[in-house]
Design a protein around this nucleic acid. Structure first.
Lengths: 188, 188
DNA sequence: TCTTTTAATGACTTGACGGTCAGAAAAGCA
DNA sequence: TGCTTTTCTGACCGTCAAGTCATTAAAAGA
């Protein structure tokens, strides 16, 4: 007899709305009413699903890193160093800045980077990426001096390229980026 | 006969206090009273020097980029590509994370990256850096395919390395970083 | 259709913070 | 020491957004 809604789905919809609004207008500019409006519901509804703004934001952080699984795992292992280079290049240039999870994350949580709740999972995410890259590197370029270190540095480099691409709309043309990545990934 | 204070010096002291507080506690956490307390003055005093919180922040942004002049201009022009590589390496690894102007900037204004008041001068700063790097590159490595593009990409790369170094205390060891930079800066 | 239970609403409350300003204090000259 | 001008102070005000809750709406079985 009662009205029933899918609570989990509604939570997700609220998180989606919040994420969009934060990304579009900046986390400090977005009020609870704005998130509600984004969903065409009343403010009170938000509070049926999240006890406070802070907890909503915490849930958003959690979700970010749950979804941010290893993008390398999805793709089939690269058959050669050349193919691997190409894949990295894709990673940097393929996604339009607005789709970039990382940029989205920065634009929302940039100011909270000193907050361990934010920086710890972020650091873990980059380490995970580096580990996966390092394993591929060892396999594909056995002569590479220090694959673990190289992979971690490569992650920093990729992040820098993506960030600038996203933030400043700067598109180092594909050729240049390719040349850079090739240079880095070629055994000395 | 009147009490006289150095207005400009006081403005600087207020900006210093604000910058420290923002850096330490996060810009959203810091209230006007907190900035005043940092200086052991009353809140009203701040308003004798800045008409509003927004203008204080704007002044801080301006100051950031006034002080962040071209770090390349300071150093004498590199006599060789090798020397240039060494200088870039210094740039990435020398300053301790906490002294890094750029990291300080990010930790304060990270969330405001979508705000043109913030992103415009930041983009201009990176472009200025890229231009300077590009000029040096053209001079030192005439064979380099597209020095302008390469320089801009190099700036992204350097920023990525510095950011990760600062944010995650990750120190790609000097050798690895050196190898990366050498690889990028060697004509193909 | 009526009834019951859950879900949604939005006017209202509360507290916090930016900004003001009348009065107090400080400085320095006569 | 008094006098004048500048500077500082902090209680107060207004606004605005988070969070509450009495009331209304929606769903669906009897």
């Amino acid at each position: 007899m009662p009205k029933i809604v899918d609570k989990d789905a509604m939570r997700e919809r609220i998180l989606d709305a919040a994420e969009n609004a934060f990304h579009r207008d900046g986390i400090t500019q977005v009020r609870m009413v704005d998130i509600a409006a984004e969903l065409s519901v009343a403010k009170g509804t938000i509070y049926l699903y999240f006890p406070s703004r802070a907890e909503l934001i915490a849930a958003l952080v959690t979700r970010f890193f749950k979804s941010a699984e290893n993008p390398l795992a999805a793709a089939p292992p690269a058959p050669s160093l050349e193919a691997f280079q190409k894949m990295i290049l894709q990673m940097v240039t393929a996604s339009s800045p607005d789709e970039s999870t990382l940029l989205r994350f920065f634009s929302i949580f940039g100011a909270e980077l000193k907050n361990p709740d934010i920086s710890t999972p972020l650091a873990a995410y980059f380490d995970m990426l580096a580990e996966a890259l390092g394993a591929e590197l060892s396999r594909l370029a056995p002569n590479m001096p220090d694959p673990t270190q190289t992979a971690r540095a490569l992650v920093s480099v990729i992040d820098g390229l993506m960030l600038h691409r996203g933030l400043f709309g700067h598109n180092a043309d594909i050729d240049t980026t390719k040349r850079l990545i090739t240079a880095i990934l070629s055994s000395p």
